[in-house]
Write a protein that binds this DNA or RNA. Structure first.
Lengths: 358, 358
DNA sequence: CTGAAAGCGCTAACAC
DNA sequence: GTGTTAGCGCTTTCAG
């Protein structure tokens, strides 16, 4: 009555299992085989639903019953040991905690990995080089199928030496080293789309508030803006391009200058600047979108969707970045080399309206 | 000259390694042993830096050289297979992609897990029950040391059946089932702290805009508010408690009603509501903190730190939640049973000022 | 249709 | 000090 140790007798089913359920003796393939009166090979066959192996229906049933009653769980470690190839994909990210962006990358990568039978082993380095090194080492030791190396904002990056020991793809970052694979957002197309939203509503005098910080986004978004204007036959006016620190304070601070330029619409480098600009505009007694139209970039949910009025913007496709990353790693898509650019979709809300006198 | 297959001869060091470096023949312990002219046992001993085992310095060096020149990486799978216990902790989250909150939990859990030699195996279910089931199964098969089951907002939860097969702790959620372990934020203390910030600045007529949605946060934050008032000897006035949907629109919408109550300060259920309220107050020509003081809750960085003026608020300790979860799982802290409440720190910015006529 | 046996890479006695 | 050996839990020929 007192001893229930070692799970002797019935399938260890203590009424109120305490901590660490049956850590004593994890049930193995062999246990199942013995219980069902067959060999381990047979059990393995039914567990893995091998189509070719013909097992008597009666035997199969007996095995299944044994599995259920013993609560058998295959040991993935042992499985990958023999198969030689693990079912892991590593994802090292430098900023899961900082923004929701990295979260989206994780989500996309995971959905796609899962779809192909892989589990995600993730490491969040928050920019700490030592942690990053440890993370990669760990992944290497777990014999991951490959590693996704991602950054929370789009930038160029150095490739850590140990990363080269694995099959890898850069996500949301890139290297100019030849032969490396990477997926990044298509900033140029994004900038073009943002501008086109304004153009479509009849605006012709469109300002662009760019970031002061050098980044592929800075160059790309500007280029897209220029291309869109050119396509619309509007000459580029350098007067209409301003720069500010890419956050709320930056957007707010540039308001006065913007107003002097006489634009009817503004395209902001990101949603955070747009948020600051909203405040600035309001202080000047201006209303959006009637007095001036605004579009942002990033589609940072918490902000864009809840500003007054909700902000039209261009979405950074982080989910897709993660998903495309694993596809590239697994060589599932066509492109398996170089930089793959992911489309940035437009998200229209109500901060833009057809221009009154257009 | 043409054949380089099977890595025969020198340590497979092709000049320009293509994809999948040396997938051909991963170097094993045995390879190292042969190269160094010792047994596998010896290599194992130096790899694991066993203190007690006495190895001749000369031998140790020979082994180390072999390891380096072959580029040997221990196989974690094999290691855990023999040791019987894996070095994984599973983390299933329902919303990494939705908010930065889950990201913080991941970060905290990972740092703490790492500190104790564990790697985090994470699964992002975004609320999808099937995915969740698969995730837990996967973790069970990888023989994780235990599972952290987390939600992105603090709530009660059901415990999935398969979760019980593992050692687990609930993070940011709880169950009233006896014997389960969980870590959650201390909402009551948080609500009290938020109110006290206002009290400390001389306010006595403090409104509370609560959420309409039932949640532990709703009850806890209100209770904290009442406790703080009571301690300050201020009678509770139901008139001063309003409810609205807990986002920007909700905060904005309740502005008019709030103003009728004649409060000198408001404590909002969360930062998003405070953001909406800022807009509402501004439209009424009121200035923060001079005309009215505001505090929020959550400390949602993108918002709170960049509102005009920056919002004083109470921080939801997600990082700590993750870290404490791991500690509880590993039974490192004192408390190893029941619900552990984590302190919510106050973050003072400039949306509160000493009351003019106090 | 099913069983026996070898072996995946590594650790841990236990010899020598 | 260092080598031998027996598994860890599983898959996979190869026999029967």
């Amino acid at each position: 009555m007192i001893s229930m140790e070692k799970g002797s007798g019935e399938p260890a089913r203590t009424p109120r299992a305490r901590r660490i359920p049956e850590r004593a003796h994890p049930v193995t393939l062999r246990d199942v085989a013995e219980a069902a009166g067959v060999s381990t090979a047979t059990v393995s066959l039914v567990v893995n639903k091998k189509k070719d192996a013909r097992i008597a229906e009666e035997t199969r049933q007996r095995v299944k019953d044994a599995i259920r009653s013993l609560g058998y769980r295959p040991n993935a470690m042992a499985k990958t040991l023999v198969s030689g190839t693990s079912r892991f994909i590593g994802l090292v990210a430098d900023g899961v905690a900082t923004t929701p962006f990295a979260g989206q990358i994780i989500h996309g990568a995971q959905d796609e990995a899962w779809k192909h039978g892989y589990a995600l082993l993730i490491a969040n380095t928050e920019g700490n080089g030592e942690l990053e090194q440890d993370a990669i080492t760990m992944m290497l030791e777990y014999k991951v199928r490959g590693i996704l190396y991602s950054t929370w904002f789009h930038r160029q990056t150095d490739i850590p030496a140990s990363l080269r020991e694995a099959d890898f793809v850069l996500v949301n970052c890139f290297s100019n080293e030849p032969g490396t694979r990477s997926v990044v957002p298509d900033e140029v197309q994004g900038g073009r789309s943002a501008t086109e939203v304004l153009l479509r509503h009849g605006h012709r005098r469109i300002a662009f508030i760019n970031a002061t910080i050098p980044a592929p986004a800075k160059d790309g978004r500007l280029l897209g803006y220029r291309e869109a204007l050119e396509d619309a036959g509007i000459p580029f006016d350098p007067e209409l391009v301003m720069e500010a620190y890419p956050n709320q304070e930056g957007g707010y601070g540039v308001t006065g200058e913007l107003l002097k330029r006489g634009a009817t619409a503004v395209y902001c480098y990101n949603d955070r600047m747009a948020m600051g600009l909203y405040d600035g505009l309001r202080e000047h007694g201006l209303s959006i979108p009637d007095d001036i139209a605004v579009v942002g970039f990033d589609n940072q949910e918490v902000i864009a969707a809840h500003l007054r009025p909700p902000l039209s913007t261009v979405s950074l496709p982080h989910y897709e970045l993660g998903a495309a990353g694993v596809r590239m790693l697994l060589e599932l898509d066509g492109a398996t080399e170089g930089i793959s650019k992911i489309h940035c979709p437009t998200v229209e809300r109500t901060s833009v309206r057809a221009q009154a006198h257009a």
